[in-house]
Amino acid sequence: MAGKIPDLEVEARAGTGKGAARAARRNDMVPGIVYGGGEDPQPIQIPFNVLLKRLKAGRFMSTLQNMKIEGQEDFRVICRNVQRDLVKDLPTHIDFMRLRRTSKINLFIHVDVVGEDVSPGLKKGGTLTLVRPEVELMVTAGDIPESITIDVSEAEVGDSITISSVKLPEGAVPTIDRDFVIATLSAPSSLKSAGDDEDETEETEVLEAPAIVGDEAES
């Protein structure tokens, strides 16, 4: 994943049950629980505004987090469920799963591009389009790559770079079970325009031909 794992500061929550959860919400906190990893469940609470901002940023449930609780060692978690108010659609409770280093998880990994300076297709004026700036992979929690790399140094106009051409980190597997496209190298816009003009000329000639034949037949 691109960059370091983001920190998520939460507070340990005293007590469980509906009463404790209501008390947390009255204090503008969202109650939650952390489970798994061979540890006892840990009741927590997170400031409402902090959680809402993270949720709006996108992909919260597929982003590894470094959870920080005062008085405890940091540990890695991933969100597994967000309960929401049925009317307001705002978070009311959140579940996290604690991860061991050997845990397998699905994450979106950033795509880097190399070889643009020598690509023959780009030198001809072609346009490189990243269809997938990020690719979802199943990875090991203790060995998460910052990115994967595609090489376009030999790419020509019209080529596509697919996941099968990418050397993935050891233990990483795509979550999509097919050879999907990551990037394409399309023709220059000027070349496309010239091709369009040729098509229009050919079409005009085809349309005019029957009219000429018809006039000669009448005469």
Rank of each mutant, 00 (worst) to 15 (best):
E154Y: 06
P169K: 01
D179T: 07
L191V: 14
V113E: 01
K88L: 15
K88W: 06
P174N: 05
V114R: 13
S189I: 15
D89R: 14
F108R: 11
L99N: 01
E170V: 04
L168M: 10
S160V: 09
D117T: 13
L191C: 00
Q72H: 14
D143F: 12
A141P: 03
G115R: 08
E73F: 09
D117G: 04
Q72S: 14
R76L: 11
R178H: 15
R178A: 09
L137G: 04
D177E: 15
T184E: 09
K167A: 13
M97D: 07
R132M: 08
F108Y: 07
R76I: 05
V173T: 14
L137T: 05
V157C: 06
D151L: 06
H93Y: 12
A187K: 13
P174K: 09
K192C: 08
S160M: 13
T175K: 05
V135D: 01
G115A: 00
V114L: 07
D159S: 12
S165W: 04
A155C: 14
S189F: 10
V139Q: 03
D89Q: 10
A141F: 04
D179I: 02
Q72V: 06
S164N: 10
D74N: 15
D89E: 11
V173I: 15
V77L: 11
G125K: 11
C79Q: 06
R98P: 00
T162M: 10
S153T: 11
G142N: 04
K88P: 02
L128E: 00
L191H: 14
S165Y: 07
S189H: 03
R76M: 13
V111P: 01
V111Q: 02
V173R: 07
R76S: 09
K123M: 08
D112F: 04
P174I: 03
S164I: 00
T149D: 08
L128G: 01
S103E: 07
F180D: 05
A172F: 13
E170G: 11
R84V: 14
H110C: 06
S147W: 12
S119Y: 03
T92M: 09
L191M: 15
